[in-house]
Amino acid sequence: MTIKTNVTKKWIDQLVEKILFFMALLSASFIVMVVIVIIERGLSPFFSDNDGLGQVNLLRFLTGIVYLDGPTFASNAYGIGYLIISTLYIALLSLLIAMPISIFSALFIAKIAPKPLGNTLRTVTEILAAIPSIVYGLFGAGVILDLVYNLSLIVGVQSSAGFSVLSTVIVLAIMIIPTMTVIAEVAIRAVQKELIHGSLALGATPTQTNFKVVLASAKSGIFTAAILGVGRALGEATAVSLVAGSRRSGISFALFETTATLTSTMLQGMKETVGLDYTIRFSIGLVLMVIILLVNFILNFVKSKVGRVHV
């Protein structure tokens, strides 16, 4: 009798393990699915006839500065070169704003602030990091657009109701600062006590220690924060599309000009769900994925060069 129950137990054990194994495999397979889908659908406009519109020219697609879509044009002339540049430009600018702010506030929260204030600030930052991007987009459309428009009046530059590079950069920076602060703060708190004590024992002031020893030792974690921040800035879609101004052609470096990113262009004119206008979104998605991978790779490379600490 006991032997029989043991056999059933073993059988059940094996079955359960198989089921759990299948679930793990299924979870892992989704990234493969994403990659296959994006590559397969994203490349098809360049090889198929696109229902009579003709193949999309890959070179012109990647370098073009005019994006023609919609029933008015019904062509295969999509150029996203200007979108690639704008996307990178906007992500870079927002990183430049967000980087110092998030590093210094992380330092303040972790090392300088009195404990109650530090804890409050940490909670505030965590809540900000959890606010969905659409709310940031709404805030951008309701507040930042007005601010930027008024600023453009003061400066005396033309601005299309505030839809501009500057608004997009501000909204993205506001969005990624909390995320980056949370990660940088964890890295700063993880710095070994011995290093800090050593620095203090050598006669450095607490502030000198914080800036020269703590930040230097947390470099690797701070880079991780930057990588995540840039990833979020590059991939953000809805918030950007509410403040960018959906530019259709031409690179815009000037702060008060309208702009567009890869993601905001993907979100435009979602009425049709068939045809080349729709499939081309997969191609833009493919380009976006490649850009994110490249940027991650470069930043990781820099991190491995700079992140090593010599104290």
């Binding site: 989704f30 493969v32 994403v34 990833g231 991939g235 993907m266 979104r281």
Partner: peptide, 21 residues
């Protein structure tokens, strides 16, 4: 590591996955 990679994918790409599959 496969599952971890999923976290880095922007949500709009998941939207494309939804459309395609």
């Amino acid at each position: 590591s496969f599952i971890e990679t999923l976290t880095g994918v922007p949500s709009i790409i998941f939207g494309l996955l939804g459309v395609a599959i």
